[in-house]
Design a protein around this nucleic acid. Sequence first.
DNA 1: TGGACAACCGGACACCTGTCCGCTAAAGTC
DNA 2: GACTTTAGCGGACAGGTGTCCGGTTGTCCA
Lengths: 184, 184
Amino acid sequence: MNASRLRADAAENRARIVEAARSVVSASGELKLNAVARRAGVGQGTLYRHFPTREDLLAEVYRHDVEELVAAAPLLLAEHDPVTALARWFDRVADYARVKREVFAAVEVGVWQDLSTGSVGPIGDAITALLDAGRAAGVVRPDVDARDVILLLGCLTRLDDAEWDTRARHLLHVVLDGLRLREG
Amino acid sequence: MNASRLRADAAENRARIVEAARSVVSASGELKLNAVARRAGVGQGTLYRHFPTREDLLAEVYRHDVEELVAAAPLLLAEHDPVTALARWFDRVADYARVKREVFAAVEVGVWQDLSTGSVGPIGDAITALLDAGRAAGVVRPDVDARDVILLLGCLTRLDDAEWDTRARHLLHVVLDGLRLREG
DNA sequence: TGGACAACCGGACACCTGTCCGCTAAAGTC
DNA sequence: GACTTTAGCGGACAGGTGTCCGGTTGTCCA
């Protein structure tokens, strides 16, 4: 649908840019926009037209990972009680994030990509499902939404590698506790 | 002590840079490093030698605010129970952050500025005091430290202005709940 | 007071980001 | 197949960041 509205050369360029970005990221761990453009054999303008911000490009590069994350939510809910499902899902986010920190940018942009429509994006939907289940079971506080959770998870991005192992899970536990309904 | 180990001209340059930064920030709301250097009448190299990163400069510019925040902690503890004190202190952080988002950068760098020495910086000390009081009273979970709190507070920086009013306090409540010890 | 040394200065430079605009060549029409 | 329209191309350019190094100038000691 989207592709068919693109001119043939534009579609090809877009694909080449994404591929170039992927290889630049996996080679250097960094993402330099002009390096991507050079490698893809396109001009800077072309790159920026297809992906206005660095995050848009990242979102495309990591779309596969994001989709996996999204798909995991209902599976976890089917197997576990809501709080455990949420905890496991957080663990999964942490796993992705340790290896490729950039996934977070993709997640964040993925969540808000159609902010205007009122929808909250695929990741937002996954989180909403987890929260809803918890609310229905009376174990998650009713006044949080997906955006809140995304924001809270965002604190992981500030961790540096050295402290990741000691702190990441721990922070997620604290966040999880904050999301749970306090009985009493 | 620090000043006396600096050469006279170096000290004066440093002061001029900070003053220039202050006026640039208050004039434009932004902080362009080369504009600061120009205004201070020093070269780029000089600026970067004194303040290796933008955050270092920000920390100096906002040191006054940071000190106020630090001073508030013991006062709040004297007047309120630990959890309330923590809540009020969070409110205070939010107040600063709304007006000048940059304060956060200052806070973060202020916390870690002498990471090597094992100390956690002035803000870190303030937070530690709040947490310790809560722990002693058995109302704050024992396994969190100042760094965790800073990280969690950091999520506020991702808020954009439009959603600040509806979300900031709310997020802080969730974080606070996560920090509290769950009875039962 | 003067000389030596190191700390310090300043701006040139290399790099990255993001924008703008004249030109090219696809896509649709007859 | 020629012609028009216009989406899309690409690279020049402006602006910002951070580094490097030859020259300068405080500071200390004799």
